[in-house]
Amino acid sequence: MRSAGTIDGITALGPDSATRSPTRRRARSDRPEPGTRPLALEPARCCICGTRDAEPVGVGEDFEYRTSPDSFLTVRCDHCALVYLDPRPTRAEMTTIYPDHYHAFTFTEDKFGFVYRVRRRLEARRLLTAIGKVPPNAAILDVGCGDGFHLELLRDFGQPGWRLVGVDLDPRAADAAEARGLVVHRGTIETVDLEADHYDFAILIQTVEHVADPAAVLAAIRRVLRPGGRLLIVTDNTGSLDFSIAKRRHWGGYHFPRHWYLFNDDALRRLASHTGFSVDELDTMVSPVNWVYSIRNALDDWGAPRPIVEWLSLESPIPLAAFTLFDWCNQRIGRAALLRAVLRRDPE
């Protein structure tokens, strides 16, 4: 969720994210300097079929933040094509793997200037297109709303009668969203007290890959959507060209160790079906971010000079523009960097 101006990643982690397996012995309460202490890890399983039948795909490190000295493994489910991190950090490690300087906490107009403004326009258009026809007084829910970036777009560019509500676990995020004048429920979608069968539309933008149990999150969203209500999901695409090229280690979409479940169209369809949704729309969406970060990660890993590595970032319009154009070509063949799905709540 690097490109989301939110802190969605830590917001939708359910209270049951810890599995029953014992945590590693190296988990300790003392915390040495950031980056030197190995994380406490726990085994994971496919959130759709519930098995651990999976084959290794990639192995990599936290190239971007170096929050720990660990190496991480991604595997692909034999049954569902879902790619997931196994093992993954325990819940107790959230504050370590999402440090205060995590980009999503600091994606502001002051810092990102031109890129921020361009993205705001693009995102507004995409959002409104996805939402399409809803009643003038529609209730719209942003799950993992972060600092309110998307809700604010809806307020500024959408219908004045829309009732906009956010959900976020992180107090830093909720405070920021409220400062924008938005309504935010503090907690996870599984735990906050929201009216059932109420919302016309929900959005889950670059969040589903961060959560401990995507199936539980979708089930909770389904509960609060009215029958026929829709859900927009945007997430990194493991059916993309950039994944094919960089999946063994450097793929930006891995975002080690913060992206726990990664989908291609097949896996997302399975998740939808498993949680009582039908698929209205499913296509790919242009994003330069994973391209830029895949290259950045490789250069960083191979010890390239720092200025070159640093130049490849969200603050650099030139590589972002170049890869936007390139990924636009990939979109023509259905292999752009992001997956975008609009799901519809099935009748009971």
Binding site: P56, S71, L73, P87
Partner: peptide
């Protein structure tokens, strides 16, 4: 590095 990661000894 892959086996070391899978077995938890990479660091």
């Amino acid at each position: 590095n892959r086996l070391a990661t899978a077995t938890g000894v990479y660091e």
